Simulated scan of single mutants.
Amino acid sequence: MSETESAAAAPVAAAESKPRRLRGHKKGAVTCCVASSARPGVVASSGEDGCLCWFDLRTKDALLTMEAANKPISSICFKPGNEDFVYISAGNEILSFDVRMGTQSKPLETYNYNRDEINQIAVSSKGFLAAADDSGDVKIVNTIQKCLYKRLREAHTSICSSVQFIPWRPWTAITGGLDSKLAAWDFSKGRTLFSIDYVAVSEEGILGGLYKGPPRAAILTTRSKGAELGDGSCNQSRAKRIHLDYTMGGHTAAVSCVAFSAFGEKGKFLISGGNDASVKLWDWSKGFYSETNSKVDLVLDIDVKKKVNWLCTAPTDSDNLIVCDTSKVVKVYSFR
Rank of each mutant, 00 (worst) to 15 (best):
T4R: 10
S6E: 15
A8R: 09
A8D: 11
E16Q: 13
R20K: 15
A35D: 05
S37A: 12
A38K: 14
P40Q: 11
P40L: 05
A44H: 01
A44F: 11
S46A: 15
S46I: 09
W54C: 12
L64F: 04
T65Y: 00
P72W: 03
S74D: 07
S74Y: 03
C77R: 02
K79F: 08
N82T: 09
D84S: 14
F85G: 00
Y87E: 05
L95C: 11
D98C: 08
V99Q: 02
Q104M: 10
S105T: 14
P107D: 06
E109Y: 12
Y111L: 06
D116Q: 12
K126W: 00
D137R: 07
I144K: 15
I144S: 12
Q145N: 14
K150S: 07
K150L: 01
E154D: 15
T157H: 11
C160H: 00
C160E: 02
C160S: 09
S161L: 06
F165M: 06
F165W: 03
P167M: 06
W168S: 15
T175S: 13
T175A: 06
G177H: 03
K181N: 11
L182F: 06
D186Q: 04
T192A: 09
L193F: 00
F194R: 10
I196Y: 12
G208K: 06
G208P: 02
L210T: 14
K212R: 14
R216I: 02
A217L: 15
A218M: 08
T221R: 14
A227K: 10
E228R: 13
L229P: 02
D231M: 07
G232C: 04
S233Y: 01
C234I: 13
N235W: 10
Q236V: 13
K240F: 05
Y246C: 11
G249I: 04
G249H: 03
G249N: 04
G250M: 06
H251A: 04
T252H: 03
V255F: 03
F269M: 08
G273M: 05
D283A: 10
F288T: 00
Y289L: 14
S294V: 03
K295I: 05
D297H: 09
L298C: 10
L298V: 09
I302E: 01
V308S: 03
N320Q: 09
L321Y: 01
D325C: 07
K328Q: 12
